[in-house]
Design a protein around this nucleic acid. Structure first.
Lengths: 210, 210
DNA sequence: AAATGTGTGTATCAAAAGATACATTTGAGA
DNA sequence: TCTCAAATGTATCTTTTGATACACACATTT
């Protein structure tokens, strides 16, 4: 549980005092540990989780493979729950905390209500819909058209850009899970990149050489 | 141009009289011929097209291949334009009329305005966001996890279900475009299905035998 | 130091998918 | 009827991806 002023320093999207009061009145705060699974495919949802601090990973599963859909960082929420506010709905993806994560949980029925009352809330909703859609569309285009080695390369460079670091801290297995393939395939491709002198492989991380 | 009462018989989502007046005041009606390209990737959008009659196909392109994102049928609109109403935005997909299509075109800036004024409009917007997202998510899962022959089979059966007909009227090339692959691959798979006595091939259509 | 789990390297084989090329068939329109 | 473009059939070859199996390295805990 947080001090209100602390909280809304982190959740800048919700600037209206009235909205802030409502959030404090109806919201619950929970903490998830690294590895906690918060949402499972098929599960009915009647709440909206907004991340305050930390990081959730939302992904799809199929037999023994999985693929990343998107991350939910601070001040963000997920699509599945958002849809649940307007329609009877169950999740079509899984959500797991990959860092210790602090979450504000709101009852789903309030989403539609607030949308008409608070412009900043409405912007938040629409922005979430839009940006999640864009992300998914980009991922879809990649999977449909690009061979894996290209997607690996793009992943590494995107990571470098986001973290301003040439050390990409991820295991081959986890990288495979991000891209929807298997560990052996990733190891093979990375080894090839190393031969081309693009990267250097280490245990637990990959060093980019450009 | 339509008679108002005719129009809103087709667009049942917009039940409020006030909203109907606004639509008639600000909307323009255009007709697209089969094959007309309405939106191109990269194009800036400042209008929202709502299909009254006919069918649009929204797809992504990459070099020589393309893949279906979704169709826009009567009473529906597309994501790209919807996003444009709230944020500066350009299309990340192409839209083409695959039937003679009648379209109601609304200025983008009205979308957000109406959303707060007219509940039925807001429902329409949210529903569009949600259902387009769901479709894309399903397609993404398919592309990521299912081999093409399975996707072909599912496509054929879905077509059968939607059209209540065992004649799937589509060329191999077009089927390839729906699924993001090439004609040869499709022909090969279909021929295999024919050997397994699942279908019978004809010029211009495929007959399902189950 | 031994035990354990995770991470990595790599070989082999099979299957899926794509690229290319060319022949043949069919239907629509001149 | 003739012509042409679109649609289809199919062979060959290559590349990509996946499946399986096993060895070894490294880090942490006991």
């Amino acid at each position: 549980m947080e001090k209100p002023d602390e909280l809304f320093k982190k959740l800048k999207s919700f600037s209206e005092p009235e909205l802030q009061k409502e959030i404090l009145k109806h919201g619950k705060f929970i903490k998830a540990n690294k590895g906690d699974i918060l949402v499972r495919e098929g599960q009915y949802l009647n709440f909206l989780p907004i991340v305050i601090e930390g990081l959730l990973r939302v992904y799809q599963e199929n037999d023994d493979r999985e693929i990343l859909l998107y991350y939910v960082g601070p001040e963000q929420t997920c699509m599945m729950s958002l849809s649940a506010a307007y329609f009877d709905y169950y999740s079509t993806a899984n959500g797991i905390a990959i860092e210790p994560t602090e979450i504000l949980v709101l009852p789903a029925h309030l989403i539609a209500e607030w949308q008409l009352k608070y412009p900043s809330w409405n912007r938040f909703i629409i922005k979430t819909f839009k940006s999640r859609y864009d992300e998914l569309l980009a991922a879809f285009g990649n999977v449909a058209f690009k061979p894996i080695h290209v997607r690996v390369k793009e992943y590494l460079f995107a990571y470098q850009k986001n973290n301003r670091s040439s050390k990409v801290s991820i295991s081959h297995q986890n990288l495979a899970n991000e891209l929807g393939t298997t560990r052996v395939v990733i190891s093979r491709i990375l080894k090839q990149f190393e031969k081309e002198n693009l990267i250097k492989l280490h245990r637990g991380y990959i060093e980019l050489k450009t």
